[in-house]
């Protein structure tokens, strides 16, 4: 039994965001972090492994070579194996091509009847929430997105799937794919023994050569060439007019109330 977790390294959009002259993101000036929802996905797999010690947790990412650092951290957190999918041929992929490559990589690892694939709901750089469902479609397995609770009984998973005004309880048999949200769990930290021993765990790099015989990996389904969508234009939204601070005291409150009243707002 395997729990395969797809993760992504993203620029920290909570900190200072650096935009280049041409309106694109200057990733070199921003801190790289593990996508927050993906950490919940890793924790979901590790939690299930806690009660199924024979299961193996495999973390997979697609990205440039520096993404290896993130995989090391996840091994130190408790993952058993890590795979870095990296190659020039994969660059410029949109969500369609990315899911194609990740589905190809997962097929290469091999999916068995009792495996579960986990993804974060969405990554904070693109916020698309597309790659998880698209991997499931390309692997021909069911998906449950927005998971806030997961229970496994043998080969059946029972998932609380969040809606805007409540939730659904959904059951699916393995193999299946689940996308995880923040409400699902609280990710654990790396352990000292994990940090000391992560480099003894299996670690592989899949490049184009490794994956090229996978049926999903074709020149016209991966990379920029395999991406149905293109960026037509990107731009920064206009700066808002600066706000005005009003002192947090009685005269400030008076000033605010008078101004709102003068404008007939209150």
């Amino acid at each position: 039994m395997k729990y395969i977790v797809c993760v992504k390294q993203v620029p920290d959009t909570q900190g200072k965001v650096a935009v280049k002259e041409d309106g694109t993101m200057d990733r070199s000036k921003m801190a790289a972090i593990i996508n927050p929802d993906d950490l919940n996905a890793v924790e979901a797999a590790l939690t299930l492994k806690d009660s199924n010690p024979d299961a193996k947790v495999v973390v997979v990412t697609m990205g440039p070579p520096p993404a290896a650092g993130m995989l090391h951290e996840l091994l130190a957190m408790g993952a058993d194996e890590a795979v870095l999918v990296s190659g020039r041929e994969f660059g410029g992929s949109d969500t369609f091509a990315t899911s194609q490559i990740l589905a190809g990589a997962i097929s290469h690892i091999g999916i068995e009847a009792d495996d579960v694939i986990f993804c974060g709901r969405q990554a904070i750089d693109g916020d698309t929430a597309q790659v998880g469902p698209q991997i499931a479609e390309k692997l021909g397995i069911p998906q449950i997105s927005y998971a806030a609770d997961i229970e496994q009984n043998g080969n059946t998973l029972k998932v609380k799937r969040v809606l805007e005004d409540g939730y659904m309880t959904i059951e699916a048999d393995t193999p299946c794919l689940i996308t995880c949200i923040k409400e699902l769990n609280k990710p654990r930290y790396m352990t000292v023994s994990g940090i000391l021993e992560f480099d003894k765990k299996p670690y592989s790099v899949f490049d184009y050569e490794t994956l090229k015989d996978e049926p999903l990996i074709e020149a016209d389904t991966i990379g920029l060439k395999g991406s149905p969508t293109n960026v037509y234009k990107s731009f920064s939204p206009p700066q808002k007019a600066p706000g005005r601070m009003i002192a947090a005291n009685e005269s400030g409150v008076k000033e605010l109330a008078q101004e709102l009243a003068a404008k007939h707002i209150i």
Partner: peptide
């Protein structure tokens, strides 16, 4: 782009082999 639309849209786009812009 409701919780349901964001589950459905990507799956449909992958099946139809076309692009999908999110949100």
């Amino acid at each position: 782009a409701t919780n349901i639309g964001r589950d459905l849209g990507p799956r449909c786009a992958a099946r139809l082999h076309t692009g999908l812009t999110a949100d």
